[in-house]
Design a protein around this nucleic acid. Structure first.
Lengths: 112, 112
DNA sequence: CTAAGATACCTTGTAATGCAAAGTACTGGG
DNA sequence: CCCAGTACTTTGCATTACAAGGTATCTTAG
């Protein structure tokens, strides 16, 4: 047990949320997402992101289009589907509730 | 993919944190913890909690003492060890950082 | 044309762990 | 003695983040 494992653990729970949120702002491809997450100190590696994007796409939350690049192979630009947007809204609520729940738990007075 | 799975997913990440926090306030036994989490809308079941408590104990973050009950089998009352308290402090920081990171990610303007 | 390097996407194997469900054990009432 | 209630434990399964390695495309240098 170490603090790194805990951080990773906490990250897991909000990864999908953050990714959907990033994609909702503009069409991006994998490296953009990695960069944005890194900026926010949410470290994620390729091996985590790609399968996750595929999963979200298979669930109908995302779609993508290929776009040529001037410096390498074509990229998959992801966008939110209507369903994805609806889902993101629900996740906003879920996140708020979680923050409230944690705050309650970690700050409430002893009862008895 | 459904919103319930996402909630469950998010919950996972903060479970240990919340449990340590609850125990830090007073010595409690499993059912107390379940009740407190339930109040905060963090649904957890026995099969999740018990192994987790055992893990935290094996990691030296918790200790416990048996206490007789007037209405059933004896109870394990858990308390934080010194190491557990230190760990909890780190988790406080980790949680704050995560909230900041998510807030940043989900509210930041489009860059480019 | 070829080789090398950069970029981008994908796959495989592993370990961790939340959860459902079932099991064990202690207590007191009828 | 049996049953209901309480408390703790165990087993099997499914999910999934991550590390590591693989494949494919494009550009540039020679």
């Amino acid at each position: 047990m170490n603090i790194e494992r805990v951080k990773s653990q906490m990250r897991k729970g909000v990864l999908e949320y953050c990714i959907l949120s990033i994609i909702s702002k503009e069409e991006v491809y994998a490296s953009d997402i990695l960069a944005t997450l890194k900026e926010a100190k949410l470290i994620v590696v390729e091996g985590t992101l790609y399968p996750l994007l595929t999963r979200l796409k298979n669930d109908g939350l995302l779609n993508y289009r290929w776009e040529e690049s001037t410096s390498g192979p074509p990229r998959k630009y992801y966008g939110l589907t209507e369903m994805g947007q609806k889902f993101l809204t629900e996740m906003d609520t879920t996140w708020d509730e979680l923050v409230t729940a944690v705050t309650t738990t970690t700050t409430s007075k002893t009862k008895k």
